[in-house]
Amino acid sequence: MVTVVSGLPRSGTSLMMQMLEAGGMSVLIDDQRPSDDDNPRGYYEYAPVKRLDQDNVWLAEAEGRAVKIVTPLLHHLPANLQYRVIIMQRDLDEVLRSQEAMLQRLGEPPGPDPAVMRRHFERFLEKSQQWLSQQTHIDVLECPFANVVTGPQPEIARIADFLKLELDQQAMAGVVQPQLYRQRAGTNG
């Protein structure tokens, strides 16, 4: 069984990886992407994931561990393995604002107008959810980012139950730092 932490970029996937690690779970990460202003406590990524569409041999290393895979790559997961996928859900406007801030810091072009980009993401997420619901090798737990940040205990209990693991739930909650919850809906920062 491979545990996958997924969602759109800037939806709280790094936080969930930190929580799982704090809870005692082995995480598949490397140091290819150093921490920065966007993720002060690290990205918790594994570089080969970015090429999942071309090479999935490394997935054997993820057996019994947690690995972060953004939603657009999930459909490249081979069906010969079983996966428990925690999908981080965050207000789409917050995600877009956070992505735009990150693009700016990276010196990347902003892309389409936010309203247009929002529609693209909505359409994409709808298709992804439809696809995920049809996969017999993937179990999904949807985890609202706002709940994790504002009152993590119930979500942590749900996660432990979903993963069927004895996790240190207190340590997981200790990782959550609400002050890192930026780009909240209805705010500018």
């Binding site: 970029p9 800037r10 992407r33 970015k50 090429r51 953004v70 657009p72 790559l73 992505q99 990150m102 693009l103 990276l106 990347e108 072009p109 892309g111 389409p112 980009m117 529609r119 693209h120 993401f121 359409r123 994409f124 298709k127």
Partner: peptide
């Protein structure tokens, strides 16, 4: 056509953010 366009834009965004190659 809209789905294909959205997928391409999402992919482009993720490449810009460094999440996929």
């Amino acid at each position: 056509a809209e789905d294909a366009e959205s997928e391409a834009e999402v992919r482009k965004r993720l490449q810009g953010l460094g999440y996929i190659e």
